[in-house]
Design a protein around this nucleic acid. Sequence first.
DNA 1: CGTGCCGGGGG
DNA 2: CCCCCGGCACG
Length: 460
Amino acid sequence: MLPKSRLGKRSPLGALVCTSCPSMESTLETGSHGDPEGGVGGPTMGSPGPQHLSRFNNKLLPGQKVYVLCGGRECTGVVEQHNHVDNEVSVLLPVLGQHVLRKLEDVWTCPTVPPPPHQMSSCIDVPRRSAESMDEMMAALVLTSLSCSPLVPSPPQRDTVTAGSASMECGGGELSDSSSSGYWSCDHGYGSPAPSPPITETEGHSLAMPPDEGLDMEQVLFDEPAPRKRRNSVKVAYRCLWPNCGKILKSVVGIKRHIRTLHLGQVSEHERCSCSEEDFYYTEIHQREPRPLTRPLGVSTPSTPWSASPSSPSPTGVGPGAGGDSPTEVSPQLSQSAPSTPDFFWQVHSEHSYQVPVQVEAPPVSVSYSCHCTTPTSTLHPRQGASFRVRSVSVGEQWLQQHSAPIRPHPVSTSPQRSHWSTRRIRGEAKKCRKVYGIEHRDQWCTACRWKKACQRFLD
DNA sequence: CGTGCCGGGGG
DNA sequence: CCCCCGGCACG
């Protein structure tokens, strides 16, 4: 509903659109091929082309082979020193026999001429790069934005993940020290106040809408069958299958990187050929969103998770999901406390139309609902399910009719099928004719009451 | 136990 | 239809 706030939220997307945005590139790069080398000259070939080191916040090692622009041409050089403070690199150019000082961003490890378009490099596979890593990037972005989304706080999980990626980024070893932090998108997601405003606007509860829209938006933007899954509150994560590891990360990219860097050996030849080797070492797991996670958002339905999972059985998952939920008796649980969350609706059949409640899908209902306010508590009755239809002919109408002329109740209709378990309607809380008029004035009762049928004058 | 009301039955 | 009631479930 708030386009503006959306924009804010979607800041990462903004970045997407503008491909030159560094933050995004970094996401991309980091995601697709973790570490550029362990010093040996052979800079990544399989993946990405020109590597502007600055983007990775990498550290250049003395003796490392690099390329710099010198006199309009790309020259091969050897790192002599990398000054982190100034981000300058002193490079020895053997060919010219001279030393040069270059900004980190002007040094790259792959023999290519980045900016000047007029020099084709033979070692870069540009198209492939875009295709391949774009996917990952998309995934990364989506996942990232998901995980950063205010709606899905899921603190524990998220922490794990964040920690995970972080550890890979930083803890991974000499990859980089403390450096990467600046660009890693998670940071801005959680920390920055920017994306959050919408939340406060919406006010804690019932944020249901915005985030969903958000998803859809993303889908639109990305034109990608994004993670609908979340709708079912099933989280997808990836678990590392490496012996004794079992790390769980939220993104494919993350898990791949984890595997690659920690298990497959930090650096090495695999850059090119084992691109998908990591695939063998992780598994996708679906995790039911645990109740506590949803809680902070406001009222949470007591009995959420027993809706059947539409997706794969995936036993691998973080098992328990939900404890023992009684498969059957739904209704008693949710009485009045629950109704504020429209997310879940209960399929219940009612026998009589007048038993059909008003309920649950907020907007459409209102009409007859308003007529109904005689009974304070009864917004949603356990037994009375949620029907998306408004009760035919408003109840109020009937009530009025009968009030003026207490005869001729007209049963609106009766649905033929009655499911056994909902046969008996719940005891109405409203006063009935009997109570109101007393037995002695039985003649004033509504006909139904007289006939020991469901009272039609004082409906619940 | 009082009450609401379903299911049935008689006229 | 109209009217009544047995009987069950619920509180």
